[in-house]
Amino acid sequence: MDIFLETERLVLRRFAESDLDLLVELDSDPEVMRHLTGRPTKRERIAQKVLPAILAGYERGLGTFAAHAKPGLEFLGWLELRPDDGRPAQVELGYRLRKSAWGSGYATEGARALVEYAFTRTATTKIHAETMAVNSASRRVMEKVGLRYESTFHEDWKHPLPGAEHGDVRYTLGRAEWYAASQRKNLQDLS
Rank of each mutant, 00 (worst) to 15 (best):
L51V: 08
R39E: 14
G77I: 05
A113M: 04
G103K: 00
Q90C: 11
G94R: 05
R45T: 13
G110E: 02
P88G: 14
R98H: 13
E92R: 13
F65N: 02
D27W: 00
G94L: 07
D27V: 00
K99W: 10
E92L: 11
A107H: 03
Y95T: 08
R139D: 05
H128G: 01
G63V: 03
I127Q: 01
T131E: 06
E80K: 10
A137M: 08
G77E: 03
E31T: 07
E31K: 10
R34C: 06
E59M: 07
G61R: 04
S136Y: 05
G57F: 09
E80H: 11
W78T: 09
A67G: 03
G94M: 05
H35F: 15
L62Q: 11
Q48M: 06
A47L: 12
Q90L: 00
Y58A: 07
V115L: 12
E25S: 15
A118W: 04
E74T: 14
Y58E: 13
L23D: 02
A113F: 01
L76H: 03
A56E: 15
G94T: 04
P30K: 11
T124R: 01
V115W: 02
V91R: 07
H128Y: 15
L36N: 08
E116Y: 02
P71I: 12
V91S: 11
M132N: 04
R82C: 15
E130S: 11
M33V: 10
D27K: 00
Q48A: 14
